[in-house]
Write a protein that binds this DNA or RNA. Structure first.
Length: 698
DNA sequence: GGTTAGCGGTTTTTT
DNA sequence: ACCGCTAACC
C-alpha cells in the first residue's frame, strides 16, 4: 500500500547495514534506544513508535554485549512480547546475521505473570516451593475461596437476612487481590473501596488466611502469588543479589498500567534503577480497577533520582484530522503530563460523528460502512469496532451474522471461562496435580449420582491416599451412575500415568465427557467443537504442565481467534477498548459514544470519570485513517431497581466542543434527526386523545 | 442422607 | 449465563 501523503515514513525495523542498529529512528527515538545504563523513562504518546524504539533498545543492548538471557522484557500481553522480540530479531539479523536472531530468542519476554511463573520454575528451590505448582486463574481463585468460606461456616452470600449478608466469592476475591496489588492492608482496602463490608473485616481475614493455607497444601499459586513470590525472592538478602546479577536489564512496557506491587518488584530487581527502562503514556492509563496506579509513571523521577525522562512526540499512526480530535479529547483531562503529539500524516478524511436512532441502526450503519470500505479495498483485518463493555457489541454481532461478515471478538467472557472448556481442563489439571481439590470437585460433580456430599468424601479419600486415584476404585459406585464412575476412575488412572500424547489424553477425556455434556447442554454439538479446538491447540508432543500453565497465563482471547474452519480468512475485529490497547487499525468504529456507554454508568467518582476519558482517548487513537464515532439516541437502560426500558442517551461529554469542531457530524438516517429529547410522560394517553377527537366531532 | 430440578436475582474493563 | 436457595425425589 502506498501512502504518498505521508510527510515522513514510519520507522522501519530493517536497517540498512551502514546505518547501524538504530537505523530508521528519529532523533528522539534514537536517544531513547541508545541510552546508557541509568534508569530511563520513555514517555511515549500514542502511535509514536514505542514498540519500534523499545525493540531497537533491546537490539542495541545485545549488540553492546549484554547477555540476551539476562534481559527481562515485561509487556502487557504475550502477543506484545512476541511481536517486540520479532522486531528485535529483524534488527539484529541485519547487524549480526543468524547469531543475532538466535540471541533475540534468548531474551526473557512476556507478561509480568508469565515471566514470574518462569522465574519461579527456575528458582523454586530457593523458596522451598515445589517446582510443579499449578496456577489458579481468577475463576479458580473464586472457587477455592468459596470452598474455604464453606469450611469456616461463614454466612452465605445471599442470605435473606438484611444485615448478615457476607460478600459473594467474586467480591471476596476482588478485595484480596486489590489488597495484594495495591500494597494496602485488607482493612485499608475495605475502607477505601468497600466501606459497606467493613463489618466483615475479621471474617474476611480469617477466610484469606485459610485460603493461603489451602493453596500451600494443594500446591497452588494464584496470579497475585506469582508476583508476590517473585518479589519476595528479589527482596531476599541472600537470593536477591543472585537474581539481580542474573537479570541486570529490565525493560517494562505500558508502565502507566503497573500497580504498587509491580513497582515494588521492579524496585527490588533494580534498586537504584540501573538497567531499568520503563515505557508508558500517562494519558492511556486504563487499568486502575486492577489496582494500577498512575503515580508509578508520574513519580518515576522520585523513585529513581538518577532517572532520565525522554518524550516521544511524533505520531506516525494517525492522520492530522484524527489526531486533532484525539488531542482535544485528552486536553480536557484533569491531570496529565503536558505533551503535544504532532502528526506526520497530513491528509485524511475528517472523523465522523454519527447520530443513530438506536443500537440497531448503529449496527446497520457500521456494517454498511465496513462493507463500503471493504469494497474500496480496505480489508476487514484492517478495521475494528471498539466498545466499552463486551455486551455492547451484541446488536452488531447479530447484524454481521445476518450479512455473513466474518468477525472475531476480543474481550468479555473468554473461551476458557465457558463451563464446558473449564470442565475438560479440570480433568487434565487434576491428573497433573491430584492435590488440586478445585479441579477434583469440578470433575466429580459432573458425574451422575454424585453431588456435594459424595464429591467431598471422594476428595478427602484422595487426599488421604496421597493422590493415588486407585483409592477411588475401591469405593462403591453411586447407584445412579455406576458405569460412568468406573470409566471416570480408570480415565484418571490412565491420565495420571501421563504416558499418552497430550492430544490423545484430551481425546480420552472427551469420550467420557461428551455424553455428560449432551445431557446438560442443548448446544452440545457447538460446545464439542470448542473442545476439538483444545485438542488441536494441544498439538503433538506438548508437555502437559506447560500447556496448562500457558493456557492459564495467556488464555486465547476468543474461540475464533484460536482457530476455526476459516482460520486465515480475513475478519473484522470486535474488541473491548481495553483489549484494543496497543493495537492500530486503518478504520475504527467507536460504538455507544453516549452518556452511560462511555463513560460507563458504573463510573461514579471523578477519578473513575477521568479514567473513562483516557479509555475513550485510547479508542480514538487506535485509528490510522478512518474514525467513525457512533452515538445512538436511545439506549437500553437497566438502572438499579427499575425495570428494563429505553431511554434518551446524550452524546458522550468527552466529545467536547473543541473535539467536535474537528469532526463531521451527521445522522445515520433521516429518522435519527428528530428522536425525542427527554420528555416527562404526558398525563393523557393516545386513547384519551382519540376520545377527545371523537367528542369534538359531536 | 443426599441428589436433582426449578426459580429469582445479578452481569464493566483483565493478568 | 450463573449462583444459591428451596422443594421434590431416590
Amino acid at each position: 500500500m502506498s501512502r504518498p501523503e505521508e510527510a515522513e515514513s514510519e520507522p522501519s525495523d530493517q536497517p540498512s547495514p551502514d546505518e547501524g542498529i538504530l537505523a530508521g529512528l528519529n532523533a528522539q527515538q534514537r536517544t531513547a534506544a541508545g541510552h546508557g545504563d541509568g534508569p530511563l523513562l520513555i514517555v511515549a504518546g500514542a502511535g509514536t513508535g514505542k514498540t519500534t524504539t523499545l525493540a531497537a533498545r533491546v537490539a542495541h543492548l545485545i549488540q553492546e554485549d549484554a547477555d540476551p538471557a539476562g534481559i527481562l522484557l515485561l509487556t502487557f500481553t504475550r502477543r506484545a512480547a512476541t511481536e517486540m522480540l520479532e522486531r528485535v530479531a529483524r534488527r539484529l539479523r541485519g547487524a549480526m546475521g543468524d547469531a543475532g536472531e538466535r540471541a533475540a530468542r534468548e531474551v526473557w519476554g512476556g507478561t509480568f505473570h508469565g515471566v514470574a511463573a518462569r522465574v519461579l520454575r527456575v528458582y523454586h528451590a530457593a523458596l522451598g516451593l515445589p517446582r510443579d505448582f499449578s496456577i489458579l486463574d481468577r475463576g479458580d481463585t473464586e472457587d477455592l475461596l468459596d470452598l474455604c468460606r464453606g469450611r469456616l461456616e461463614l454466612p452465605s452470600a445471599s442470605g435473606k437476612g438484611a444485615g448478615a449478608r457476607f460478600p459473594k466469592k467474586a467480591v471476596c476475591a476482588a478485595v484480596l487481590s486489590r489488597s495484594a496489588n495495591s500494597g494496602e492492608t485488607v482493612a485499608e482496602t475495605l475502607e477505601t473501596r468497600y466501606p459497606h463490608l467493613m463489618q466483615h473485616e475479621a471474617a474476611l481475614r480469617r477466610l484469606f488466611d485459610l485460603y493461603d493455607e489451602a493453596k500451600g497444601e494443594q500446591n497452588l499459586l494464584d496470579f497475585d502469588d506469582l508476583l508476590l513470590f517473585w518479589e519476595a525472592l528479589a527482596a531476599d538478602p541472600k537470593a536477591g543479589p543472585a537474581l539481580r546479577s542474573r537479570f541486570p536489564r529490565v525493560l517494562v512496557d505500558e508502565y502507566q498500567d503497573t500497580n504498587v506491587l509491580q513497582a515494588r518488584l521492579l524496585k527490588n530487581l533494580a534498586p537504584d534503577g540501573r538497567g531499568l527502562t520503563a515505557v508508558g503514556d500517562d494519558a492511556q492509563a486504563i487499568y486502575s480497577f486492577r489496582a494500577a496506579t498512575i503515580r508509578n509513571i508520574l513519580d518515576f523521577g522520585e523513585h529513581y533520582p538518577a532517572a532520565t525522562v525522554l518524550p516521544l512526540e511524533t505520531n506516525y499512526r494517525s492522520t492530522a484530522a484524527v489526531l486533532t480530535v484525539a488531542n482535544a479529547v485528552i486536553a480536557a483531562a484533569a491531570e496529565r503530563h503536558e505533551k503535544t503529539l504532532t502528526a506526520t500524516r497530513q491528509i485524511g478524511p475528517k472523523p465522523l460523528v454519527v447520530r443513530c436512532r438506536d443500537e440497531a441502526e448503529q449496527a446497520r450503519f457500521i456494517a454498511d460502512r465496513v462493507l463500503e470500505l471493504r469494497e474500496s479495498g480496505l480489508e476487514l483485518d484492517k478495521q475494528a469496532a471498539l466498545f466499552r463493555a463486551s455486551h455492547h457489541s451484541l446488536a452488531l454481532e447479530l447484524e454481521l451474522q445476518k450479512r455473513d461478515v466474518p468477525f472475531k471478538k476480543f474481550g468479555g467472557l473468554r473461551f476458557l471461562e465457558t463451563a464446558h472448556v473449564k470442565d475438560l481442563l479440570a480433568f487434565l489439571r487434576l491428573a497433573e496435580n491430584p492435590r488440586d481439590e478445585i479441579s477434583a470437585l469440578r470433575c466429580l460433580l459432573l458425574l451422575p449420582g454424585i453431588g456435594r456430599g459424595r464429591a467431598t468424601k471422594a476428595v478427602a479419600a484422595l487426599r488421604e491416599a496421597g493422590g493415588e486415584f486407585s483409592t477411588w476404585a475401591d469405593s462403591p459406585a453411586p447407584s445412579g451412575g455406576a458405569s460412568e464412575w468406573t470409566a471416570f476412575v480408570s480415565l484418571m488412572q490412565t491420565l495420571a500415568a501421563n504416558r499418552d500424547d497430550l492430544s490423545s489424553q484430551i481425546r480420552r477425556i472427551r469420550n467420557l465427557y461428551r455424553p455428560l455434556m449432551e445431557a446438560t447442554y442443548a448446544n452440545a454439538a457447538e460446545r464439542n467443537r470448542d473442545l476439538e479446538q483444545i485438542e488441536l491447540l494441544a498439538g503433538r508432543g506438548r508437555d502437559r504442565a506447560s500447556f496448562l500453565a500457558d493456557l492459564t497465563l495467556d488464555p486465547p482471547s476468543s474461540a475464533a481467534a484460536t482457530a476455526g474452519p476459516h482460520e486465515d480468512e480475513e475478519r473484522l475485529t470486535l474488541s473491548t477498548m481495553h483489549s484494543a490497547k496497543g493495537l492500530e487499525f486503518e478504520a475504527v468504529y467507536v460504538l455507544n459514544a453516549c452518556q452511560g456507554g462511555i463513560p460507563s454508568d458504573q463510573a461514579e467518582d471523578d477519578a473513575a470519570i477521568e479514567e473513562e476519558r483516557r479509555l475513550f482517548y485510547v479508542a480514538v487513537t487506535r485509528a490510522r485513517t478512518h474514525l467513525t464515532i457512533c452515538h445512538p439516541l436511545t439506549r437500553h437502560l437497566k438502572p438499579r431497581g427499575l425495570r428494563d426500558g429505553y431511554g434518551f442517551a446524550e452524546l458522550t461529554p468527552f466529545l467536547t466542543p473543541a473535539a467536535l469542531a474537528g469532526c463531521e457530524v451527521m445522522p445515520a438516517s433521516e429518522d435519527a434527526v428528530d428522536a425525542a429529547p427527554p420528555t416527562p410522560a404526558a398525563t393523557v394517553t393516545a386513547a384519551d386523545v382519540r376520545a377527545a377527537i371523537r367528542g369534538r366531532r359531536g
